[in-house]
Each structure stands twice: as C-alpha cells, then as structure tokens.
Design a protein around this nucleic acid. Structure first.
Lengths: 325, 325
DNA sequence: CTGGATTCTGGGAGCGCTCACAGTCTCTGG
DNA sequence: CCAGAGACTGTGAGCGCTCCCAGAATCCAG
C-alpha cells in the first residue's frame, strides 16, 4: 500500500480513501491512485483490514443436519447456491460448515464465535440446538431457514407459509371428493413437521388419528409411513405427503400394494422440487420458492449485520396441480 | 491476550507459545495460561494471526461449472461434503465459491489471489479456464478433481481411472455377446469425455463412428443422444453411457422406442451414483469412489501448502453388475 | 567450580491496514 | 477583505497477534 502511495505520489491515507469509496478524494488523486494500483498489481490484505475494522466480510452457512440430507434433498442445494450468489453480489464470502454430530456442532460454535464471520445462516432441521444460544450470547446476527421453533422472537428467519400450504392441499383434495385423507408428516420437532400437520387439522378438524403417520423427509421413510397408513386405514383414498421426496417413496409403496394413482389413492406432495416431475406420475404439490428464500435470508442477514435488526419473513406457498391428485 | 497474560502472571510471548503448541513452556506456566484462557473466555483473533503468519487456514472450493450441475449431479454434493469434513479434521475452513459465468470467474480469481485462502480445490468440468493460469502465476497450491486437460504437469489432481473403467465396461458388454455397442460420451473437453471414449476404442478399435454420440452429463442430454444413436444405428444391441444420470435419460428414450432393457439393448452406466439404483432397472455401472477422491484431494492440497509438492493420484474403478446389462 | 548447552521467559518490532485528527487550500457571502 | 464553511490531504496511533533476540535459570560434564 505504501508502494501504491509512492507511485501515485500521495499518502497511505489517500490510497485507503480510494479503496473505501473514494470520498473526499480529488479527481486527480483518484486517477493517480487507480493507475498506481493497476501498475503495481496491488491487492488489499483482507486480514489487515479485518483486524482494524473488526469485520470479516464473510458469513457462515451452517448445515446442522444429523442426516446426510444434502444428498437426498435438492432443496439444500438450491438454498446453498442461492445464498452463495446473493452474498457474492454484496461482496460477502460464504463459508460452508457442516455440523452433523454434536461434536461438530461444538467445534463450529467455537469457530464461529471466534470472530471468523460477521453472521450466520442457519439451515438446520431440528430445533433446540445449543448452537443458537451460544451464537446469540455472542451477539452474532443469525438468520434461519424455516421457523426456528422456540426462538421465533430471538432470531431472524425466512420461512414458507407451511400451514397455509397444507391447508391449500387438503382443501383441494377434499374438493375433489376425497373423504379419507391421510397425512405423512415430517419429524415433529421441525417446523415443516408441525405446521403442515396443523394446516391439515385446520381443514379437517381433529379427524382420525389412524390417518396420521410420520416420516423423516427421506424417500424410504415415505414408503414406510405409507405402508403403515395402508395397514391402519386401508380405506384411505388420498394422502398428503409433506415432501415430494417422501411422496415418491409413498407412491412406490402404494404401487406395491396394487393401488392406482390417482384413481385409488390421490397423492399430494410438498416443495415442488425437481423430484416432483422426475418420473410419472407428475406430482400435485405445493410450491415453495427456495431461491426467493435464499435471497431473503441474505437480505435479512445483511440488515442484521449493519443495523442489528431482527425480522421474520413468511413467503407465500402455491398449489400446483399435476397428475398425482 | 494481554489480559490472559496478566491473569496467568506471564507475558504475551508465553501465552502465544502455549497457543501454538506449547513448546519451551514450563508446566507451571502452561497450566496457568490454560486456566487464564478458560477464565477470561479468550479466543484468538484469527485475522491478527493471519496478518503476521501470512496464512489464512482456509481453502477455496471453486465450482466453476457453467451449468447448474450441483443440482443434477449428486457427485458434486459428495465431493463437497467429503472435502468439508476432511478439511475440518485438519482445522482448515472450506470457503465455497461458485464461478459459473466468465465474470464470476474473474471475480473469484481476484478474490482468491488476494490472499484469502492458502490453496484451491478446483472442481470444474471444462478445461482451459484462464483461472488456472492466474492461480498458478500467484503460486497458489491447486488440486483439481479429475484430470485437468493440458495442465497435468502443472497442478495436482485426483482422478478415477476413467479409461480403465470404460475398458472394463465395454469388455463386459462384449463378453455378454453384444456385437453393436454404442457409446454416449460426456463433453469432449472434459477428461471424463475423452478418457472414457478412449477406453471404449481401446477395446473395440476404431469401430463405427455412427455408434458414438455426445451428451453433457444431464439426464435430458442422455435421452437426446440415445434418440440420435437409435436413428443412426437402429441395430445397436448395447450402449455404454458415460454417466448414470445420462443412462437414466437413455433408458427413457429406449423405452419410448419400444426397446426392452437389457433384452433388446443392454445399458451400462458410469459413476455408481445414487441414481443407479433409484429406479428399475438397476444400472450396471462403473463405481468411482468420490469420498475417497475428496479425502485424497485434501491430502494433496495439504501437502502442497506445507511443502509445495505436486502429485497426481489415480484411483481404481470397478465394474458393478446389476440389471441393465 | 566452571563453561557451555539447554530450557524457559519477557519485550520490542512489525505484519498492512483504517481511522481520527490536524492542517492546508479553495470558495463563498457579508 | 475577511471569516467561516467545505473539500481535500498527510500523519500517527493502534488493531491483536507472532517472531526474534537477549537474557535468566537450570543442568550436566569436565
């Protein structure tokens, strides 16, 4: 930097000003510095800058999922890519951390609170992680993907309107004349698990508990839950499966049981992910826009870093009718 | 840090020594410092450390793929996760960068060469990127996933033995009595594209050019290439498709054309990825171990950072026989 | 008892940057 | 013509750490 200043015939201070927006710099000095930077091939030392500004211009993307969902679930990939790009536009770097095990989570907690990042994007399935408390106590801005159960007032989050989406699907199934509508929920400690089930009950009342089964968002679990449902309620004529991937599993199970879709049993999914249209029957499902989720998350985190604000954003969901219901 | 030194009754120098391995520190001082660190809740400032050591203890994972393959191809996810974990074990942070467009690549080039990272993991489909030259000129250690065409002597890389894998598959198909064996290759500017085709020719000689078609590793392109092959060589009785995903597309196309698999046309894939067993028929394919690839990549990069060594690792591939051939 | 390793410790210098402050110069209105 | 506001510039201090060097303490062999 001293070199640049010498070449441009100005002082370090002026070079620094040019680097940081160029306010209070004369046009001559500006041009001279820019020329000198090109000539010397100078690049700022981010560490030196961070040392004094106390900011790192990077954020952590923490995937604290106990399973290897990154592979199974395309939503994660979309979220990850969307965040990377939205951050890049703001000149912020995305640091990916995977914290599956409890030990991982401790390590990540230490790392994050050591001031490596200015904020955290939390993509975790399960609630009640001690991570949130630790991050909060350090005053680190956090934005979660999905409603963080038990922390709604404490940290920012972006979520799709799960409950309303579920209502739309169940209402639609009923409008098509289905009487015995089952549901395969996600884990009951996830917002997608409780909220979609709540939407189901909003429309159908308490209903028959034999029509409710639980999966873990994997394809296999969808098949297993469907088998269970078929056993407990052989007369069911429709099922709302709370993720497309599980719906695919459920369809496999239904076919094994000799059921035609949608003639014998109608199937509704959730997500409108790639798997919804990867094979016949094309899934009738609820769309949630994960690209939008990621841009909103980044926006919220940026706000949090610059102003300390907290906010929650609920994005609308939309029924997409295809072949399976 | 000064606080810790005061509490422990020692100097900054001693605290620093404890932090960096504890050599030349008396047991008493060591214990006192460790106690003081716990008491004060001290965490090192990574930026200050990096400023003096000139190391960042982080590496970039550069995904410079023009398409959105991260979604289509599960291999990327496995690679990404494997690298993250292998690095975490070494206390190194993974910074994810996506450089799809040319402009992205420039931005990433600037960023990486600005000293943000100690090394680079390059996961790029296409060769001849100016990125490699730029990184090399800065002396940054690089490890590529897959053979970096034209840079084999310049940078480290880890690759599966594509050519031998292809030979295994084609040999197997021929041993099963197939006479007219087609191939759907990857893009011809990728190692997987040229090497697997070379393996095919190793076994079959020059053969009939009408039996060769090219895809781009997406499912759709597999279907299109199959249609083309069927048109040019309606008598073909087997096809080696150079990725499982494309093989799925090819199977769709074959079925549309009324062909039974494997009775009318046998299909061989490559990768042994999740899609190989996602639906019937289960794919006969070539296994390459991406977890192993990622750990080897990290090992090589670590070597490169600490010692400046370069190396190439070729991992064996293995035929997996299932239903499709 | 002494000289030279060997182990351990403290403190100064400096990594490359930003920020606050003091100072200079120019331009305005009274 | 002058005071004061505004635009611009240079300089010193300091961010929190590691590294180096000098010196103190300890130990062992001669």
């Amino acid at each position: 930097m001293e070199d640049v200043a010498d070449v441009a015939g100005v002082s370090r201070g002026t070079v620094s000003r040019v680097l940081n927006g160029g306010h209070y710099v004369s046009p001559d000095a500006l041009a001279a510095v820019q020329r000198a930077i090109r000539k010397t091939g100078y690049v700022v030392n981010q560490h030196a800058r961070s040392l004094v500004t106390q900011r790192s211009d990077s954020v952590a993307f923490i995937l604290s999922d106990p399973q290897d969902r990154l592979f199974e679930d395309p939503n994660f990939a979309i979220l990850l890519k969307g965040c990377t790009q939205a951050l890049a536009e703001r000149g912020i770097t995305l640091v990916l951390t995977i914290a599956g095990t409890l030990e991982d989570r401790k390590r990540v907690g230490r790392w994050v609170t050591a001031g490596h990042v200015d904020g955290v994007l939390l993509v975790s399935e399960h609630a009640g992680s001690p991570l949130i408390d630790e991050l909060r106590s350090r005053g680190l801005p956090i934005v979660a993907a999905g409603r963080p159960i038990g922390y709604e007032r404490d940290i920012s989050y972006v979520a799709a309107d799960d409950r309303d989406g579920a209502r739309q699907m169940v209402t639609y199934l009923r409008s098509r004349g289905h009487q015995r509508i089952g549901i395969i929920t996600g884990p009951i400690d996830t917002p997608g698990g409780v909220d979609r089930l709540a939407g189901y009950h909003d429309v159908l009342g308490d209903g028959d508990p034999r029509l409710v089964a639980t999966g873990d968002y994997t394809e296999d679990s969808g098949a297993r839950a469907m088998d269970e449902l078929l056993l407990r309620a052989p007369d069911l004529d429709a099922v709302f499966v709370c993720s497309d991937l599980m719906a695919r599993g459920a369809i496999t199970a239904l076919r094994r049981a000799g059921k035609r879709i949608p003639e014998d049993v109608a199937v509704g999914g959730f997500d409108d992910s790639k798997v919804a249209v990867s094979a016949p029957p094309l899934l009738t499902t609820i769309r949630q826009d994960f690209v939008r989720v990621s841009t909103e998350m980044v926006r919220l985190l940026h706000d949090g870093i610059t102003s300390g604000d907290r906010a929650a954003v609920i994005l609308p969901t939309e029924l997409v009718v295809r072949d399976s219901a």
